[in-house]
């Protein structure tokens, strides 16, 4: 898988300006926008706490939430993988002794690791500057959960991609899924604001592992037991989706027409 991670790194380093925007400018802008939004909300509502948390606590959450949400997002690779099936460029993968799942997982993780290294500087710097509730000793645990989530979200993408063998265009699945993930991951707002029943439901879904759980753990909203539970939930969902993906992949290849060749 290392060779595919290397391929992703080589590819991204070819386009310097695009990578600079992706790694530096884009996180800066999205963090600034989110922080301004929450700051304005507190000002407009004239309150000092929301859902039992202070403004500083929310800003600290937002700083890290933007980072985790960016790293856990995979729409770019999902689009590329769908294109492979739609256009038939997957042919060049199918005729070589490599596995499509592994090939793209390696690239996806390679790209995410590179992005993580650069993008981490911003929230870490802000947390040091602003103080707040960040506990840097908890960062490895939060990153570990994020890595598990990356494998999960990639596996979910793989399942969607396998549907393209039969349905050809499935871009709308991606859009719908992304909207759901946006809400269920805690990127839009902390899941503390959900009703107790919805919050309970979200604890059995893997999406909170993208943002809410690692950020909550990092900023002392959640404890190690919550992190551990999220790890198991995410691993279990990954396993289930992996089986679905394998089933649909085999069925997909049976009907694939080798498009475009």
């Amino acid at each position: 898988m290392w060779v595919y991670a290397k391929l992703a790194a080589e590819t991204h380093l070819e386009y310097r300006f695009n990578s600079f925007v992706d790694w530096c400018l884009s996180p800066l802008i999205s963090t600034a926008v989110e922080m301004a939004m929450w700051w304005t909300m507190f000002q407009a509502m004239g309150v000092s706490t929301l859902g039992g948390f202070s403004r500083e606590s929310y800003l600290s959450y937002v700083t890290w939430a933007v980072f985790f949400a960016r790293i856990s997002a995979n729409w770019m690779y999902e689009f590329r993988m769908l294109q492979e099936v739609e256009s038939g460029s997957i042919n060049s993968i199918l005729v070589r002794p490599l596995r499509f799942y592994e090939y793209y997982l390696g690239q996806f993780l390679g790209y995410k690791l590179m992005t993580m290294v650069f993008s981490l500087l911003l929230p870490a710097g802000l947390a040091l500057l602003m103080g707040g509730t960040t506990d840097f000793w908890r960062l490895p645990g939060a990153i570990f959960l994020l890595m598990i989530y990356l494998v999960f979200t990639y596996t979910l993408t793989f399942c969607i991609v396998t549907l393209a063998f039969r349905l050809t265009k499935v871009g709308s699945f991606t859009v719908t899924k992304n909207f759901f993930v946006w809400l269920a991951s805690g990127e839009l707002f902390p899941l503390d604001l959900l009703s107790p029943s919805m919050k309970m439901l979200s604890s059995y879904l893997p999406f909170a592992s993208a943002c809410y759980i690692p950020v909550g753990y990092l900023t002392h909203r959640l404890e190690f037991a919550d992190l551990l539970k999220a790890c198991w939930v995410t691993v279990a969902w990954t396993g289930v989706l992996g089986l679905f993906g394998l089933f649909f992949w085999r069925r997909g290849l049976r009907i694939y027409s080798g498009t475009g060749a």
């Binding site: 060779v3 391929l7 590819t11 042919n91 060049s92």
Partner: peptide, 23 residues
């Protein structure tokens, strides 16, 4: 396939061949 690229579009052929050698 004469009408399809099978090497990697964004990197040099040498890098592609090195990747193929690993594969």
């Amino acid at each position: 396939l004469g009408q399809k690229n099978q090497l990697w579009w964004d990197i040099s052929p040498l890098d592609s061949f090195s990747l193929l050698a690993s594969i």
